[in-house]
Design a protein around this nucleic acid. Structure first.
Lengths: 208, 208
DNA sequence: TTGCTTTACTAAACAGTGTTTAGTAAATTT
DNA sequence: AAATTTACTAAACACTGTTTAGTAAAGCAA
């Protein structure tokens, strides 16, 4: 019986249509304006229908959050070809900063907003939910481990070093995205330069 | 005529009562649950009254945000007595991290949430609005400048170095507050230790 | 003291939000 | 053909920030 398979296909198709519409609205108008009602109107269904495919708004935004991680993972994978782990580390950093600056809405959802993390709370144990995030972080840890093995950096603990390199780039872009660099009273384009300059200097400081 | 003075006093008293009630609710129940209606009920006035003292919710939360900065400034001022600028830098970092971990709601409002920044947009030019933030950041910049002058760190640019040290500690605590360190799958108390350990290592890396 | 004006406040409405419930019409199975 | 399951929705619930129009009291001038 192909009916049950068609139904399944239709179910995922509908889910995807919702996520697609929500993503478009989110990227264009931001989180606040992307309401369940607006999404429903866009796909020409009633708001209640969305709740047949997603538990709540957080779960829907977790789906978008996940697509963001796929995009970031694809970007960081380009660094794989770089043999020198220190140069690769730098390249991952640049990729991360540029991803954040070019996709501020995605970045916000992935690393700043509370919404997708609320969804993650209930369904821990579910495979293929946090995997993309772990993959990106794993790339960072293994690259730093290579640096340690080759005695290229001072640090001895890859976890600690990963923690603060990630924190540093996240701090840079999140302060930018949430407009906290305004205290520094600098022009937009100079901030952008200084973010990359900061990355240079920190990695340089790490060198053995 | 003392009437106009009494009226002025009553006006600021009322404003303070609103901020006080809002702060208490915010710290206990979080931003989302601190609604204009709930605050109004707590102080036994109608919701519309709050709009006679604050332009909107953002402006009210900017007032709370400002109190947070006063608290942080008071904490960081304790580091002033430390003569060695590098040790002082480290102490400021520890203070910053501990402030964030002990007052996550305040920290969130001060450095992560959009709300207070929206309020800041309209009224630029207003004195005594962003001053506390500038004071805290100024302390960091001048401490780092001292480190450069005394050739204690490799960096030559105090602005850049301030940018990435701030970003690093902000990154650490904001990833913690917004629950992104869950990818690392580590127990709560160990995360806390690693935040301070990260600070140690980064400052060590900065040494000339 | 009376009359006018300003001040301080509020009830009610406006326009939205996420979410749930009860009910319907069509598709599918028996 | 009847029974059941599926997919969907109208309407309601309980909220949210904010505005408008109106009221009662306080302050001031004649």
């Amino acid at each position: 019986m192909g009916i049950v398979e068609r139904k399944e296909r239709e179910k995922t198709e509908m889910r995807d249509r919702i996520v697609e519409a929500a993503t478009l609205m989110f990227l264009e108008d931001g989180y606040e304006k992307t309401s369940i009602r607006n999404i429903a109107e866009k796909i020409e269904y009633s708001p209640a229908t969305i709740y047949l495919y997603f538990k709540d708004k957080d779960e829907l935004f977790f789906a978008i959050h996940n697509i963001g991680f796929q995009l970031l993972l694809k970007e960081t994978e380009k660094s794989h070809k770089i043999k020198n782990p220190l140069k690769r580390l730098h390249d991952i950093g640049v990729t991360y900063i540029e991803f954040a600056l070019n996709n501020p809405e995605y970045y916000d959802l992935m690393f700043i907003m509370r919404s997708p993390m609320n969804a993650l709370k209930e369904k821990h144990g579910d495979e293929q939910c946090w995997t993309y995030g772990e993959a990106v972080f794993g790339t960072l840890v293994s690259t730093i481990q290579e640096c340690i093995d080759q005695k290229l950096i001072k640090s001895k603990d890859a976890t600690i070093a990963s923690m603060y390199t990630w924190s540093m780039v996240h701090g840079l872009v999140s302060l930018k995205i949430r407009e906290r660099f305004k205290v520094m009273d600098l022009p937009e384009d100079q901030i952008r330069k200084m973010l990359l300059q900061s990355l240079d200097e920190v990695i340089n400081n790490m060198k053995a």
